[in-house]
Amino acid sequence: MKVLLFGIAKDIVGSSQLQFSEVVPKTVLELKQLISKTYPKFGELSSLAVAVNSEYAKDDVPLNRNDEIAIIPPVSGG
């Protein structure tokens, strides 16, 4: 499972991409929780859009091993 990170999420993780091959989260919510475990600051983000295979996905959307996920925090700069 490939997870692309944008904005502040990328800054927190320190990389634009994460791979999950052994432990694969079952839902969007589980994925967020999994990332938060390793990166507690990620868990503090209160507003995040998540896309699964380029489609916006809410917390309960199920995930599959081959999915590509994008984690998109809001950005404000102008």
Binding site: G7, I8, E44, L45, S46, S47, A49, Y56, I72, P73, P74, V75, S76
Partner: peptide, 11 residues
């Protein structure tokens, strides 16, 4: 996309 405003200093 982003229902609610993030907390201050979050971003």
């Amino acid at each position: 996309l982003f229902p609610n405003m993030p907390k201050e200093h979050e971003v």
